[in-house]
Computed example of a mutant assay.
Amino acid sequence: MENSSSFRSSLALAGARLVTKARSIQLGLVASWCVIAVVVLWALFPAWFTSHSGTVGVARQQLRAPSTEHWLGTDALGRDLLARIIHGASQSLSGAFVAVGVGLLVGTALGLIAGSARGRMDGVIMRGVDVLLSIPQLLLSLSIVILLGFGTVNAAIAVGVTAIASFARLARSEVVRVRASDYVEAAFGSGGTFSRVLWRHILPNSLTSVIAFAALQFGWAILTISTLGFLGYGAPPPTPEWGLLIAEGRNYIARAWWLTTVPGLVVILVVLSANRISQSFGKVRT
């Protein structure tokens, strides 16, 4: 009887731990979606969240500490920091969407062609992918943005080009896996044409992992675009952009720490939220 009671207690304790863990995981996912939703609303409707300008400062309001009037303080030109972060969301998010779109579309197309065609075409495409992967991504991004010129769009295109190789390799591996499945062979055996089987069976069943990777790349794109903005290759002043905000505040970090710390925390929070959402897509696939 004692052993049976001890076993039931252990089982109940293990079940309670699993339920607690599941709830914490679910709460983390919900919190991640809420963070992304708020940032998207910042980008689309900044006037809903602040009445201050993101580019125009107020005289005699320089380097004010956080207060009820300016929740996150002001910068060296008297501009409200919260307003600049909110208005800067459109720059960072639009750049991330462009970067992920370039990598997703071009990379998936190359991976689809390589995995479906096989042979010499596969070899040529994947050798080009290997060359791109051998170059450090930040160095390649800097090289491309220097050729294209400064600005958020050019920085986003540069980041997107560096992501093409990763998308292409993942898409090819998924296409090869699906191409060897029994239902695909059955579709070919029943008289399906190559293009029909490709669009109806191979492509839809290969996109789940690619979409999950795109969510992961979204956070990485925000981080890389912010890095380029911090180095001075992104949006020019006074345009509010998260990386530029961090760069502008570093000269005042001893006197006004919030100018660098708060935008940096926003970038970290958005990147972590995008990574958490990406992990949920991967779990759905498995």
Rank of each mutant, 00 (worst) to 15 (best):
M1T: 14
S4V: 06
S5C: 02
S6I: 12
S10D: 08
T20Q: 12
S24E: 02
I25D: 14
L27A: 13
C34W: 10
V38M: 14
F49A: 08
T50G: 08
G54R: 11
V56G: 00
V56T: 08
Q62E: 14
T68L: 07
E69V: 04
G78T: 04
G78V: 01
R79W: 02
L81W: 00
R84W: 09
H87M: 03
Q91E: 12
G103F: 05
V106G: 02
L110F: 12
L110K: 00
I113S: 09
A117G: 07
R120N: 12
D122K: 03
L132A: 13
S134H: 03
S143I: 11
L147I: 15
A155E: 08
F167E: 00
R172A: 02
S173L: 11
S173C: 08
E174A: 15
V178T: 13
R179N: 06
T193M: 03
T193C: 00
R196Y: 10
L198T: 13
P204C: 05
N205P: 11
S209N: 10
I211Q: 10
A212G: 15
A212C: 05
A212Y: 01
A215G: 13
L216G: 15
Q217M: 07
G219P: 03
L223W: 12
T227L: 10
L228D: 00
G234W: 06
A235Y: 04
P237H: 02
T239W: 04
P240R: 13
I246R: 08
I246A: 11
N251T: 13
I253V: 14
A254V: 00
R255I: 14
A256V: 12
W258V: 05
L259Y: 06
V262P: 01
I268E: 03
R276I: 07
I277N: 14
I277L: 15
S278R: 06
S278K: 12
